[in-house]
Design a protein around this nucleic acid. Structure first.
Lengths: 213, 213
DNA sequence: GGTATCGGATACCGCCCGGTATCCGCCCCC
DNA sequence: GGGGGCGGATACCGGGCGGTATCCGATACC
């Protein structure tokens, strides 16, 4: 995977556009940091994973901290978009949508181990620094607000009465997404595929009926 | 806090019993690792927090990895006991118990930031090594099984029909405990005090009625 | 096509940490 | 109460990492 420039026979070497280098470094950082930990991965590791050297990192991001900051911006934004897109399916009833969203998020947690690992690491950093204006925390708050808004809109559109405030539902959705991913990564058998969907349906007042899907 | 032996005026120095040293080191490790990260904290840091030096750590645990392993054993066992004790209140109805448990777990998450931080770090290590027989993973599985058993017993005793299998309820309980603690640590306002209790009540079929407590 | 510039490569520095070898003094037991 | 052994303290080593100064070559512009 990821054939860097140095993979070529040292002959026809082309210098890739700067944006391309940036992207490659960010992607490599996401993978490498997720797998080895932010502190556990050296800049040499990250750069090598992208097919470059440390020099490229310092040229583009100034420092390791700068790389992490850029990564937060890049990835949390992407996650927010993904989350909103997943909810924007204007079909079917509210519980049905809840179940569909749950299934999709469950599947995503299987495919995106890296993202959850990275998310938790960024969260840890934010908590440890104690800075409430941490950019990761801020972006995460935006995500929660966006989800809450979406939940409220869908409920109103369906004319349904939520058993809990929309804001709480949003919080629970995020908490379950993380919490269940955690359980599933260490013991997949403990988290049935449809569990997330069932609970989400419960949260919007739809019951869980053994198999009414 | 934690007045180590060296705090004395260098005169009346007594050698503490070995078990005492072990305990002090384990406690200091839990605090220090939680706050600075397992890799971020040096053995000097840990030993100093307990009022000793690195030599004591190597004498008692052989290596940093040995200290971490001992910590896993120590802390996960304690957590399992705490969890079981919290559920063993033979009073009131099932939803009432669920709400009480939720309140208690929420309060605990406020007081035990360190434990959640440490838990997540240990979990990350287990996931990254990929060892399914990791002792942390095994102990966590035991915890889940114990919770599932307790849930089933309580439900049967109350003659209630659970909307989800007891095992799933147990998984959800753990997931919510972690997930909500995560949300609460970065933004306390986003997680109302009674949210956990309400959801747990929902999970055991008790509804959430705005304030029937 | 020649040249100036910018960006990534390379070599190097200093710090810090895990680990180890060794030392020293408090406990325990006879 | 005296001596031996154990347990913690101390000093030191080696490796690895973030960061930096410098080099070199490709790109783009005239």
């Amino acid at each position: 995977m990821s054939t860097g420039p140095t993979a070529l026979p040292a002959a026809a070497r082309r210098r890739p556009p700067r944006d391309e280098v940036r992207r490659a470094l960010l992607d490599a950082a996401a993978r490498t940091f997720a797998r080895q930990g932010i502190d556990g991965a050296s800049l040499d590791d990250v750069a090598a994973a992208a097919g470059f050297t440390k020099g490229a990192v310092y040229s583009n991001f100034g420092s390791k901290e700068g790389l992490v900051a850029a990564l937060v911006d890049d990835r949390v934004s992407a996650y927010l978009d993904l989350g909103l897109a997943a909810v924007d399916d204007p079909a079917a009833t509210l519980p049905e949508r809840a179940r569909a969203l749950g299934d999709r998020l469950t599947a995503a947690s299987d495919e995106q181990h890296d993202w959850h690992l990275l998310f938790l690491e960024l969260w840890q950093r934010a908590v440890r620094t104690g800075r409430t204006d941490d950019s990761f925390v801020r972006r995460h708050g935006e995500l929660r607000a966006a989800v809450a808004e979406a939940v409220a809109a869908h409920a109103e559109q369906a004319g349904a009465e939520l058993p809990l405030p929309a804001a709480s539902v949003a919080t629970l959705l995020l908490a379950l997404s993380n919490g269940l991913a955690i359980e599933r990564m260490t013991d997949p058998a403990a988290v049935p595929d449809d569990l997330m969907g069932r609970v989400l349906a419960l949260l919007v007042g739809g019951g869980t009926g053994p198999d009414q899907r």
